[in-house]
Nucleic acid binder design. Structure first.
Lengths: 226, 226
DNA sequence: TTTTAATTTTAGATTTGTCTAAATTTAATT
DNA sequence: AATTAAATTTAGACAAATCTAAAATTAAAA
């Protein structure tokens, strides 16, 4: 099955949206794709005809099994390319998204499998998001906002939600980046700020704003795939 | 300047055709692109409006300076990707063309410059064709068919025109590949076959058919760019 | 130099993906 | 429950790239 770049973008966006909500709405998808609701309806009709999603007029929609498989393949390509761009071509992890948006539509299956091998079958992309394996199995790590993590329980940074320069500046200043292991030492209910500690460093304070935008996971990520 | 994938394909094809003939014809371009003459005319009109070529109705056409620059950038991308596929991803040199046809349309300039650096600024692609540098300068090697090379003058294989499996089989059998240095020992006017000699090997005979499809160049390629 | 053939262009249609504006359906309020 | 508002879909249009069939131009042959 080969889909157009546009269709692949729709599949990917629907996949991400339905992770959070069960059913996806036309408006939400239009916003995610920066397009018009009418255009979304047009495309939904085609995707439904191709039996990639379950869709009821005026109600909402979601990918079926076929659609999910296709979406995961696109995500796999995107994240492998991002990894390549950062690890091999020395791009900064904040500059690669746009380029990967183009590369993800290259169709050759052999290419992506060889790229995967060349990169050493990486488990996550440079933003900490898991890379689906060649069978389309996606490692699901129970990611949670740092703000919601319990006190005194080891964890590591698995992703950064908001990747503004300002945000990255704060993290860099506090020696926190992807994979950094840390613990929350104290929570301050007054302003929801946190005191966290990285090994061999003095404790630092993070604002609620920051804590909400840092994803963390267990110290040792389980190999659970689905 | 960003052009659509389709336009880039036209530019590239025109560039190659006008290397041989001065003016390109509608039919020749249609054949090269496996499309219809009417479609070619349609596109020519657009390329002319964008001031990428010189075109007179019913007469013929060729790229102007702007068009040539754009075409060379596409060729640069294509050949760098081919090099990457063969040298880094271990593809065979005969399988990479199709994939590079897609990759060559990725637009990021930063990507291609970093890829170039990552690969060590290679001078030629896996087929022996020169890779334009980042300023669009294309190394012009005086390539000539093996059939037309003088007797007893050292040379090296710089390219293979017809890359059928059968052709490659013959070459492999005679230990001839890209970069192989050899000399013609004798020409047989009867059937235009040749006796050639590779160093440290017994002489072998090549048919006229083969000799016409092997490009050769001087032993030491000059660094002449234009 | 006519006539015929080949090449090239135009006219009009089609597909994919998008849009605006209007109509329809669903949800929210008074 | 009736009315207003929001969300969604339809209708009709448009741009890009392609096509077929017919017309126009150029080249070749009788």
């Amino acid at each position: 099955m080969k889909y157009s770049a546009s269709k692949e973008n729709y599949l990917k966006a629907i996949f991400h949206l339905q992770q959070e909500q069960g059913l996806v709405t036309t408006n939400a998808l239009a916003a995610a794709l920066r397009t018009r609701p009418a255009s979304v309806t047009d495309m939904l009709k085609k995707l439904k005809e191709q039996k990639l999603l379950i869709y009821e007029r005026y109600k909402g929609f979601k990918l079926n099994n076929e659609g999910r498989k296709a979406a995961v393949q696109v995500i796999r390509k995107h994240r492998l390319w991002e990894y390549f761009l950062v690890k091999k071509l020395q791009f900064g992890w904040e500059e690669v998204h746009e380029i990967a948006e183009e590369l993800e539509h290259i169709s050759s299956r052999a290419l992506i499998d060889r790229l995967d091998a060349f990169l050493g079958h990486p488990a996550t992309d440079p933003h900490g998001d898991p890379i689906p394996d060649s069978q389309g199995r996606l490692l699901v790590r129970r990611q949670v906002a740092l703000a919601d993590w319990p006190v005194n329980k080891a964890m590591q940074v698995s992703g950064i939600a908001s990747q503004t320069t300002e945000m990255l500046e704060v993290l860099q200043h506090n020696h926190i980046r992807l994979g950094t292991r840390l613990e929350i030492k104290k929570k301050f209910p007054f302003d929801d700020s946190l005191e966290v500690k990285v090994r061999n460093r003095p404790p630092v304070t993070l604002s609620a704003r920051v804590a909400k935008n840092v994803w963390v996971t267990d110290d040792e990520p389980p190999a659970e795939r689905r």
